[in-house]
Amino acid sequence: MVAIFGVNFNEQKLVKKALESFYALGPQTSARILAKYYIHPRAKVGTLAPKTVTALTAELSTMTIESDARRALQDNIKRLRDMGTYRGRRHAMGLPVRGQRTRNQIETAKKLNRVERRG
């Protein structure tokens, strides 16, 4: 097991997939991180040198990912609500934000649209 950014990964896991398991870190960013540290796209976590692992952890800690990214999202929603916008109110009510009908099929909106959105 190799710990990157406080998370333990199996040695057989692709580095790319391991990076993309963090919230708000997608294929584009992970490809760039790999290139920055000279890791080939098919590298597995087990083959990384300890130095590279610490460098990756340091790199990730400077980025807005995981709880930081979630908080940024929640802040955005909160800002909308505090301004009293329609979008903010709809978020607070747990209803669709972008003009969808509410007669039926709003389960996704009910699940996701909150002021304290999960992410």
Binding site: Y38, H40, P41, R42, A43, T47
Partner: peptide, 8 residues
């Protein structure tokens, strides 16, 4: 094809 390790 980027399937082996590389380093500068």
């Amino acid at each position: 094809t980027a399937c082996t390790e590389y380093a500068p």
